[in-house]
C-alpha cells in the first residue's frame, strides 16, 4: 500500500538529514504505529506519505505508483490525514459543509455527495450533527468530524498525526475505538503517529524512529520487551511493562510479554490454577 525505498529528507540543501535512508512498508488493512520522541522525524515521515513533503533522496510508492509532483492530487485522495488540532482545518460553518468540502472540490454529484457524507458521519457516530457549528463541538467530536471529512473521500489509508494528544482520556479512548472500527469494518490501513506507547498496543506492527532512522520494527509485544531501553530514546514504557519488570526481578516470568495489565493478571491467574 505505502512503501518507502531508501528515503532521506532534509529541509534545506545545506541542513542535515532529518530522515536518513529509511525503508518501510504498510500493507493493506494493517494498523502500523509510528513512534518516536519529539524531533525524531515521525511527522516528517507522515507528511511524505501523502506528498505534503517529497523525499530529498529515495522514492515513496503508493499502490506501487511512485509519488511525484504530477500525481499528488490522485494520491492524496488515497491517503487521508488527520492532525493534532482539527480546529486549524475547519472551513465550513456547519458540520455538513465542512465534511462536504473535499467532495465539492472534486465536483461530486450533490445527491451522491449527500449520501457519502451521511455514511461518513455515521461511521464516526456523528450523524445528527449536520447543522452544528464545528467550532462548538468538544475536542473528541471535532476530531471525529475531521475524520468524517477524510472518510468521505473514500481513502485507503488514514494517517493520524498525534490525533489523540489533545483529547482528554475518554475522548482518546473513543477515538481509538473509532479507528479500530474503521480498520475492521472498512478494511482501511491505519498509520498512527504517537509518542504514547499505550496507544501502540492497538497496532499490528510498530515502527520506532530515533534520530531519523528506524530504531525498531516489530510487534508491540516485542517492543515492550525492550523495557528500559525505551527510556534511553525518550519513550516512557507503559505501566504494564514497568509492573512486569518488577515481577521479573522477583523471578516471576510469563510466557509472553503482556500488552496490558489485564493480560498480566489473567496469566498470573492461569499460572496459579496450574499449580
Amino acid at each position: 500500500m505505502i512503501k518507502f525505498d531508501r528515503v532521506s529528507f532534509r529541509y534545506r540543501d545545506d541542513s542535515s538529514k532529518v530522515i536518513n535512508d529509511i525503508n518501510l512498508s504498510i500493507d493493506r488493512g494493517e494498523w502500523v504505529a509510528l513512534i518516536g520522541h519529539n524531533g525524531s522525524g515521525k511527522s516528517t515521515v507522515a507528511k511524505m506519505m501523502n506528498g505534503l513533503l517529497l523525499p530529498s533522496e529515495g522514492q515513496v510508492f503508493i499502490d506501487d505508483i511512485e509519488l511525484t509532483e504530477q500525481n499528488l492530487i490522485e494520491v492524496r485522495q488515497k491517503v487521508g490525514m488527520v492532525f493534532q488540532n482539527p480546529e486549524n482545518q475547519f472551513v465550513g460553518t456547519t458540520v455538513l459543509d465542512d465534511v462536504a468540502f473535499g467532495l465539492e472540490n472534486l465536483g461530486v454529484d450533490p445527491e451522491y455527495m449527500y449520501e457519502r457524507i451521511q455514511q461518513s458521519l455515521k461511521q464516526v457516530s456523528m450523524d445528527g450533527y449536520e447543522q452544528h457549528e464545528p467550532h462548538r463541538l468538544s475536542g473528541g467530536q471535532k476530531q471525529r468530524i475531521a475524520i468524517a471529512g477524510v472518510l468521505a473521500m473514500l481513502p485507503e489509508v488514514i494517517v493520524f498525526d498525534e490525533a489523540t494528544t489533545m483529547l482528554d482520556p475518554m475522548g482518546r479512548k473513543d477515538l481509538l475505538q473509532t479507528m479500530k472500527t474503521l480498520k475492521e469494518e472498512r478494511g482501511l490501513s491505519i498509520v498512527s503517529i504517537t509518542h504514547d506507547l499505550t496507544e501502540a498496543a492497538f497496532a499490528d506492527r510498530v515502527l520506532v524512529l530515533n534520530q531519523g532512522e528506524v530504531w525498531f520494527e516489530g510487534e508491540p509485544r516485542q517492543l515492550f520487551a525492550k523495557g528500559e531501553e525505551l527510556e534511553n530514546i525518550g519513550l516512557e514504557p507503559p505501566f504494564v511493562t514497568k509492573l512486569y519488570h518488577q515481577l521479573k526481578s522477583e523471578n516471576i516470568t510469563l510466557e509472553r510479554e503482556p500488552l496490558d495489565f489485564k493480560e498480566l493478571v489473567d496469566e498470573l491467574w492461569t499460572l496459579h490454577l496450574k499449580k
Binding site: 519529539n38 493534532q84 509518542h195 504514547d196 525518550g234 519513550l235 516512557e236
Partner: peptide, 9 residues
Amino acid sequence: AGLDPLGRS
C-alpha cells in the same frame, strides 16, 4: 500538553 513523555516528566 503536547510534550513527549520525557519532556513531560
